[in-house]
Design a protein around this nucleic acid. Sequence first.
DNA 1: TCAAAACCCTACCTGTTCAGTAGGGTTTAT
DNA 2: ATAAACCCTACTGAACAGGTAGGGTTTTGA
Lengths: 144, 144
Amino acid sequence: MQLSTRTRYGLQAMVELAASEGILSLAALAQGQGISSAYLEQLFRALKQAGLLRSVRGAGGGYMLARSAGEITALQIVQVLEGNSAVSECVSGAGEPCERACVCAARPLFLELQAKINAVLDGTTLQDLANQYNDQTTRFQNVR
Amino acid sequence: MQLSTRTRYGLQAMVELAASEGILSLAALAQGQGISSAYLEQLFRALKQAGLLRSVRGAGGGYMLARSAGEITALQIVQVLEGNSAVSECVSGAGEPCERACVCAARPLFLELQAKINAVLDGTTLQDLANQYNDQTTRFQNVR
DNA sequence: TCAAAACCCTACCTGTTCAGTAGGGTTTAT
DNA sequence: ATAAACCCTACTGAACAGGTAGGGTTTTGA
């Protein structure tokens, strides 16, 4: 039931991009999160192919959001990075339900669960997260 | 993000027990779901240790719910069968948040997600699922 | 009584996935 | 032209999911 680290790292890096409102290099982002840039690169490649990121090559280059932060939802990011985002195969939109669907005792529960999860993810944009992130960081710095 | 088959099978079997309102043998339940009784047994042992099931040994024995179906929630079952029921370590009630919690961009999202998931699971009892199951089965039989 | 049904328990196995590394390419600013 | 930075493929090691195997012990019912 856990989200993968791919998703966690990817989300965090996307929020940093949203908060910085500009271009950031892979190396800078990776260092900020304490992971290797090679690993973060894999995640960013997937996000780029999905149309959520744009990249600028060459010295001084880096990554930036392909759209405004308010137009990118957590759901979009999760769907790209999480291999299997459905709670159970039988409720993944694409595939057909399992052959026992019409007698599956748990399916109504799974459907409800999936709906709520998607609602939360789809209702949260990078802008929302970036705002919270800024508040949090500010408070944190004040405390120090 | 998927639930394990342990959880799915366990839930389904528990609902069957709730719907039958009596004692059922492991063999009968396993056959009903098309899995081996040895596998289902593992799940049931865990559920028994957690106080959700009672067993009767010997010929003619089997398993039954330890409490009424209305008093057993999906959350209880999931927590027993799903090794790691939290969306992310940093929001699992027991452990402390990760060392980056106060600067984690994604934590507010994870907290909200976890809360909604738990609300759905905790708000669903075996009785609810058994009712839906009976309705469904009845309709299905009528169609045939 | 005694055999079979049924629960009880511990190991083990096997394939997949996660998490991450390695290492070489190509583009571009300076 | 050189170094920064993105681009891409392949591989690896550990953990876990999803079972199987095989031997107990308890109890019923003929």
